[in-house]
Simulated assay, not measured.
Amino acid sequence: MGMSVTISSAVAEDAEQIFKLQYLAFQSEAALYGNYRIQPLTQSLDSLREELARDIVLVARLGDEVVGAVRGSVDEDGAGAIAKLCVHPRLQGHGLGARLLRAVEEALAERAQAARFRLHTGRKSESNLRMYRKAGYVAVGGRTASDGVELVILEKEAAKEAADYAVSA
């Protein structure tokens, strides 16, 4: 009866849909902080296109519509950096964010041999913090973003099974 959501690598043609989704999905975060200068809302389309060309970018699709997205890259210290995880507001609360998170972790472990993952979220973003903790992330620090938002930095080690699989595959 209904369509299922699929997760795949983004292509250059997805840039505008990701851009619009990101703007829509991060409105609730901006409202939570009373700050509409947060980076996901001020990022340019050209900057997003550069990320698409350089980083691991995954999208969740419902038919032809991009309803979720996440970026992954490798930090200067070799950690898999996960950023801008977003899900369309009408699909939030159904596990799609957790699916995208697992998918980008797998891609970073496989393609970039990341042994640990790092991400950040706003200190007041309880639903995000809950999802990340449930996925095994622990707070390792904090910082204030250039837009003034207090961030929590979280990390987790890559699953041993995934590392073993990547070595044996």
Rank of each mutant, 00 (worst) to 15 (best):
M1D: 13
S4T: 05
V5R: 03
T6L: 14
S8A: 14
S8Q: 14
S8D: 13
S9Q: 12
A10S: 01
A12I: 01
A12Q: 13
D14W: 15
E16A: 05
Q17S: 14
K20F: 09
K20R: 09
L24D: 06
F26N: 04
Q27I: 04
Q27G: 12
Q27N: 10
E29D: 13
A30F: 07
A31E: 14
A31D: 15
Y33M: 02
G34P: 01
N35T: 00
I38C: 03
Q39W: 12
P40A: 14
D46E: 15
L48I: 07
R49L: 07
L52N: 04
A53C: 08
A53Y: 14
R54Y: 13
I56G: 00
A60D: 12
A60I: 03
L62T: 00
L62F: 11
D64E: 10
D64N: 08
E65S: 10
E65G: 01
V66C: 09
V67F: 12
V70F: 06
R71Y: 10
G72Y: 04
V74S: 05
D75G: 04
D77V: 00
G78R: 01
A79E: 12
G80D: 03
G80E: 08
G80Q: 13
G80I: 01
A81S: 15
I82R: 11
I82N: 10
K84D: 02
L85Q: 02
L85C: 08
C86V: 00
C86H: 02
V87D: 06
V87E: 09
P89F: 07
R90N: 07
Q92E: 09
G93W: 13
G97A: 08
A98G: 02
R99I: 03
R99G: 09
R99C: 12
L100V: 05
L101K: 02
L101H: 15
A103N: 12
A103V: 07
A103M: 05
A107E: 15
A107M: 10
A107L: 14
L108C: 05
E110N: 09
R111H: 14
Q113C: 14
Q113D: 11
R116A: 13
R116E: 13
F117M: 10
L119G: 07
H120G: 06
H120N: 13
T121Q: 08
T121D: 09
G122Y: 08
K124M: 14
S125N: 15
E126G: 09
E126K: 03
S127F: 05
S127L: 08
M131I: 05
M131A: 07
K134Y: 04
A135Y: 04
G136S: 02
Y137G: 02
Y137K: 06
V140I: 04
V140T: 07
G141A: 07
G142H: 06
G142V: 00
G142I: 00
T144G: 03
T144E: 14
S146I: 02
S146C: 09
V149E: 10
E150D: 10
I153H: 06
L154T: 00
K156T: 09
K156A: 11
K160R: 12
K160A: 14
A162H: 11
A162Q: 13
Y165S: 01
Y165I: 01
A166H: 07
V167E: 12
S168H: 03
